Computed example of a mutant assay.
Amino acid sequence: MLIILPPSETKSDGGRGAPLDLAALSFPTLTPIRQRLAAALVDLAADPEASATALGLGRTQLDEVARNATLYTSPTRPAIERYTGVLYDALDVGGLTRASRTKARDRLAVGSALFGVVRAGDPIPAYRLSAASRLPGLGTLASQWKPDLSAALDDLDTDVVIDLRSGGYRALGPVAGSIEVTVLTENADGSRSVVSHFNKHHKGVMARTLVSTRRSVRDISSLASVVADGGQRTEIASDRELVILTD
């Protein structure tokens, strides 16, 4: 089982790891693309105004440009500790047992506009780049990642891929046969609506359940059962879509 988490725009500072070594990251077939994007991002950081435009930053966010400027020299930390925010608060890797933290490193990956996808333990620096960004001279990020990212993910030796990425990040590298998750609110009258902000929380809770369980997940039925045992209400929409229902 592999669970692909969405990244977050917010990231923790610092770290104790050595500076970024792209060749040491998981999915080494993606190294040439990572090198191209990283070089473009560092070059762009030399012009703060151009960076702000390309990355969609406001005047109060120019410190993000400084992060990109030091991409190759700043310290790293495991990806699962680098990303922050609602989903990662709910996952709470630091609060897991030692056994579950080991499972988290084995079972979790994170989608990334800059790195394509990284394993939970891959050491990465803080940076700013989103799926919708356009780096000068390179066009859309989807045009850079296709078809290599999908090929790398399709080549995984795992029974089930659970793709929790948002649509923009899935578009960078769709995974054939993966299971996607939709979070819906069920209202008192029986109507349903898509959960926006808090869908990240519910996906984080789901990911925590999946790295804590001793049960095997082989298909969507066993996935629904494990997630339900974790306290979430589930519904199988199709053989490739699991719905989490909230009140």
Score class of each variant (00 low, 15 high):
M1S: 11
M1W: 06
L5G: 01
P7C: 10
S8A: 15
E9W: 03
D13L: 12
R16M: 10
R16L: 13
R16K: 14
G17I: 10
G17W: 09
D21Y: 01
L22H: 08
A23G: 12
A23R: 14
A24K: 14
S26D: 14
P28Q: 04
T31F: 01
T31I: 07
I33Y: 01
I33M: 06
Q35A: 10
A39K: 14
A40L: 02
A40S: 06
D47S: 12
D47R: 12
P48E: 10
E49S: 14
S51E: 06
A52H: 12
L55F: 04
L55M: 15
R59Q: 14
A66M: 07
A66R: 15
A66H: 13
R67Y: 09
S74G: 07
S74N: 05
P75V: 00
T76V: 10
T76G: 07
R77I: 07
R77K: 15
R77G: 01
A79H: 05
A79S: 13
I80S: 04
E81S: 12
E81A: 13
E81Y: 11
T84H: 00
V93N: 12
V93R: 10
R98G: 01
R105K: 12
R107W: 00
S112V: 01
V118E: 03
A120D: 07
A120H: 05
G121W: 03
G121R: 08
D122N: 12
A126G: 13
Y127N: 03
R128E: 01
L129W: 06
L129K: 06
A131M: 03
A131C: 05
S133Q: 01
R134N: 12
R134S: 07
L135H: 11
L138M: 06
T140V: 04
A142L: 02
S143W: 02
S143K: 11
S143R: 13
Q144C: 15
W145T: 03
W145D: 06
K146P: 00
S150W: 05
A152C: 03
L153K: 05
D155L: 07
L156Y: 08
T158N: 09
V160W: 05
I162R: 09
L164H: 04
R165S: 04
G167C: 00
G167L: 08
G168H: 10
Y169G: 05
Y169H: 07
V175E: 01
A176R: 15
V181T: 05
V183S: 00
L184W: 11
L184P: 00
N187A: 13
S191T: 15
V194C: 00
S196R: 09
S196I: 02
H197Q: 12
H197R: 07
F198N: 13
N199W: 00
K200P: 09
H202D: 08
H202T: 13
G204P: 10
R208M: 10
R208L: 08
T209S: 14
L210D: 00
L210I: 09
T213H: 03
R215G: 02
S216L: 11
S225H: 13
V227Q: 06
G230F: 04
R233I: 14
A237Y: 04
A237I: 10
D239I: 07
E241L: 13
E241V: 15
L242M: 08
L242V: 09
I244W: 07
